[in-house]
Amino acid sequence: MCHLTSNSFAVNGFALEGGCELAFACDVRIAAMNAKFGLPEVGLGIIPGYGGTQRLAKLIGPGKAKKLIFSGEQVSAEEAYQIGLVEKLVPVGEAFQAAKVLARKTSYRHRLRNELTRRLTVRG
């Protein structure tokens, strides 16, 4: 089950195909220890949509991204954290709460700062 909160994404379970690609589009990804990530649509002979190929390469580097995309394998939360796909790991059932805490810290009062930070980190 995936929940979107502000600019963070909480995963407590599976984030596959579109759910995984939606996670790539967020600023911060928080995963419960039982989370799994993957792009299994390659098994159907199609490539990830929603910018999945480009966003994944920016997050974890082109080599690791190609490995995940070509293989269609799922990765555990722990492996996702190790390769840089996830910024924070939390116990099972606590991902959504952790995302809410982060959302409060990055609330609307800091909207301009957040937008400038996004632009600078993405575009340089």
Results as ranks from 00 to 15, higher is better:
His3Trp: 04
Thr5Ala: 05
Ser8Gln: 14
Phe9Pro: 03
Ala10Met: 05
Val11Tyr: 05
Asn12Val: 05
Gly13His: 12
Gly13Trp: 06
Phe14Ser: 11
Ala15Ile: 06
Ala15Leu: 08
Leu16Met: 13
Leu16Gln: 11
Leu16Asn: 03
Glu17Asp: 15
Gly19Cys: 05
Cys20Ile: 04
Cys20Pro: 01
Cys20Thr: 14
Glu21Lys: 01
Glu21Tyr: 04
Leu22Thr: 13
Ala25Pro: 00
Ala25Ser: 13
Cys26Met: 14
Cys26Asn: 11
Asp27His: 07
Ile30Val: 15
Ala32Glu: 14
Ala35Arg: 00
Lys36Ala: 05
Phe37Asp: 03
Gly38Ala: 04
Leu39Asn: 10
Leu39Asp: 09
Leu39Ile: 15
Leu39Ser: 11
Glu41Ser: 13
Glu41Tyr: 10
Glu41His: 02
Val42Asp: 06
Gly43Tyr: 12
Gly43Gln: 08
Gly43Lys: 13
Ile46Trp: 06
Ile47Leu: 13
Ile47Cys: 01
Gly49Asp: 02
Gly52Tyr: 00
Thr53Met: 15
Arg55Trp: 03
Arg55Ser: 08
Leu56Gln: 02
Ala57His: 03
Leu59Ile: 11
Ile60Thr: 00
Ile60Ala: 08
Pro62Ser: 12
Lys64Glu: 13
Ala65Phe: 02
Lys67Asn: 09
Leu68Asp: 06
Ile69Ser: 12
Ile69Lys: 01
Gly72Leu: 00
Glu73Asn: 14
Gln74Met: 15
Gln74Phe: 12
Gln74Asp: 09
Ser76Pro: 04
Ala77Met: 07
Ala77Tyr: 03
Ala77Cys: 04
Ala77Phe: 02
Glu78Arg: 12
Glu79Gln: 12
Ala80Trp: 02
Ala80Leu: 02
Gln82Leu: 12
Gly84Phe: 12
Gly84His: 08
Gly84Cys: 11
Leu85Ala: 10
Leu85His: 04
Val86Ala: 09
Val90Phe: 06
Val90Asp: 06
Pro91Lys: 08
Pro91Leu: 06
Val92Glu: 10
Glu94His: 08
Phe96Thr: 12
Gln97Met: 05
Gln97Tyr: 03
Gln97Glu: 09
Ala98Glu: 05
Ala98Pro: 03
Ala99Tyr: 00
Ala99Val: 02
Lys100Asp: 03
Lys100Glu: 12
Lys100Phe: 02
Arg104Cys: 11
Ser107Gly: 15
Ser107Val: 00
Tyr108Lys: 08
Arg109Ala: 14
Leu112Trp: 05
Arg113Asp: 09
Arg113Lys: 06
Glu115Ile: 13
Thr117Asp: 15
Arg118Asn: 04
Thr121Trp: 09
Val122Ser: 10
Val122Arg: 11
Val122Lys: 13
Val122Glu: 14
Arg123His: 10
Arg123Gln: 10
Gly124Leu: 07
